[in-house]
Nucleic acid binder design. Structure first.
Lengths: 342, 342
DNA sequence: TAGTTTTGTGTAATCGATTACATTAATTTT
DNA sequence: AAAATTAATGTAATCGATTACACAAAACTA
């Protein structure tokens, strides 16, 4: 119903030009105090609201950033996004969210759409399948749009990243299992073309080697991150002639599956088999048998990602900065791996 | 680095005007096939990308919708947002997310910011504290921006809503507890100024009255939706002279707290006390003692909300439609309330 | 008092698209 | 062959802001 009020309407009302109105609203000292006050009052009275679209077109700053994640309804990504939103909100930035659903074409499509929408930056976690599709990323950089990876990164020159030390997290978790007396630790892995899963695998492996235990590649198995796959693979592990006495999983969901299967086999946790997961999903804490896991502080990761973006925005355009922030994981030891004192 | 290519650049390259380029790119039949092809080829060669900001300013359509929720890192809201995104993506709409953190001022601020950013619609779940701050909502409507509430709604004329039947969900859950033989059912409620909590309370009450059981207001207690509050309140309930034999909670988190406290008291679930929650949070399914809960199909709710928005957008502006979609809740019965057959 | 500086506004271009309204050239009609 | 259509493109306004440059009036300088 109500027509939109523009600075031209205010100008007409006061018999001045839109330029003066614009300056007055921006508190330009060249405009007399009297006029400034008059304009401010009239704007308020007419219920004027600045059209950010026009401003964005003129200034080249949309005050929108794009955030791309594989999926939204995961505690981890939702928390990261919360962190991003809360950190950017005070600066007046809005967050546009996109999901790739681990689909390469969707990822490309989303990047293009965000660029066309003139976002001021793109913060993303790459999808499972985007390994070596650097073309889109190059397009972002060529447009001089800040690009920052969080958690799942691709290694590209000039791109800042915010990650956690997955190697370290896996190393500590495995060391902890070893400290509990476990000698044959299986690993439920995931697609190791993704750096985070490769690093978790490497951290696990290093911990075993550093402890003088035998490393057995045959009990490292790739799983999809869900309960069912965790059960299925654990079943096959338990049926081995030489079953493991601990399971370190790169996902809490597969760890949960493992726990269910181990119990179904009549074995006791942690007495017979210890289990540790990764991500510190909310449910790991809630279980009656709480699950040991590695916390990734997603909220912090989101805030840090946003901070790196803000820094980047404020630099001279000529300077190419590349910041690699690595957060420390926190091992949360719970009942699923903590044996009674002996 | 690379300058942005506009239709003017293409025009100059081909010695035609920008108007012709614009028409050609939009496949206007008035432009000869030859020219259209030529423009398309040149645009591709020069790597032209349409500036959606300019388009938005000219057309008045930004193809952005704002989604406002109390918080992002809750499974429920994250799933709703996923549903919204997946439904709107095919139409070319982008989703801008905002959190109110149950802060009235933030809610108002977010609404204003979205309106100034010229979003094409606002889809929101009101915050705990926004009861009767209809002023902002009116501002949205006055600007003719479609406003749709999901889950937590305010009752405003001309606003479409997508909710679940909370009364029904609570009614069924309570009836189920009664069917298990429970005679004294406590209710962990929440701020009943919020319609969803009021309705859950009313559904619970009605089920008790319909079953000829005694309704006792003293065992209806308001709780904050977290585990600690659930424990605290359950403790006080168990210490009553006449403790309940079942707890129906309006939140899964308080239900979990209740379960922990009941176990701590040495009582058995479901034999001594049955427990049911609300929301079907992922962890309710994962627990060793899985928790009975009411599913709200958040993904569906998100998709439905988006569909209502699309419908609204496509109507003539003159027509004020008001659509009230009510989804059916699904009672998921699990071990926390299912007694063995007697 | 003539010249210079300052103060406050206006003029018009710009951001990058779309589109109503000409206008010219080509084709068809009579 | 003149008149009427049609086809293809150009001109210029528009969306709603910002801002470099211009300019008049007032204030200051010498």
């Amino acid at each position: 119903m109500s027509k939109k009020i523009t600075i031209y309407d205010i100008a007409k009302e006061l018999n001045i030009t839109a330029a003066t109105v614009s300056r007055a609203l921006n508190n330009n000292p060249k405009i007399s105090k009297v006029t400034r006050q008059l304009v401010a009052d009239t704007a308020a009275k007419m219920n004027y609201k600045q059209n950010k679209l026009a401003l964005a077109l003129k200034s080249g700053k949309s005050y929108n950033v794009g955030v791309i994640v594989p999926r939204l309804d995961s505690n981890f990504f939702a928390s990261v996004i919360r962190g991003i939103e809360e950190e950017l909100h005070p600066y007046g930035y809005h967050v546009i969210i996109c999901q790739t659903r681990d689909d390469k074409n969707l990822e490309i499509e989303n990047i293009d759409a965000l660029l066309n929408a003139q976002v001021d930056g793109i913060l993303m976690s790459i999808s499972n399948v985007s390994t070596e599709q650097n073309e889109s990323f190059e397009r972002i950089l060529k447009k001089n749009v800040p690009l920052i990876f969080f958690d799942r990164k691709a290694n590209i020159d000039g791109v800042s990243t915010v990650t956690i030390n997955d190697f370290q997290g896996a190393y500590e978790a495995t060391k902890h299992l070893i400290a509990q007396g476990c000698k044959r630790i299986a690993h439920l892995s995931n697609n190791r073309l993704i750096e985070i899963f490769r690093d978790r695998y490497l951290g696990y492996k290093q911990a075993i080697l550093d402890s003088g235990l035998e490393f057995d590649e045959s009990i490292v198995i790739e799983a999809i991150s869900n309960v069912e796959d965790g059960r299925k693979i654990t079943k096959s592990l338990l049926e081995l002639d030489n079953p493991p006495d601990a399971i370190f999983s790169s996902s809490d969901f597969t760890a949960l599956g493992a726990i269910q299967e181990i119990k179904a086999h009549g074995l006791k946790i942690p007495e017979d088999i210890c289990v540790a997961g990764f991500a510190n999903e909310p449910f790991t804490k809630f279980m009656e048998l709480a699950i040991t896991s590695v916390d990734q502080s997603p909220l912090e990761m989101g805030k840090m990602t946003a901070k790196v973006f803000i820094e980047q925005i404020n630099k001279k355009e000529i300077v190419k900065i590349e910041k690699k922030v690595v957060l420390n994981p926190k091992l949360i030891i719970r009942e699923s791996s903590l044996k009674k004192q002996h």
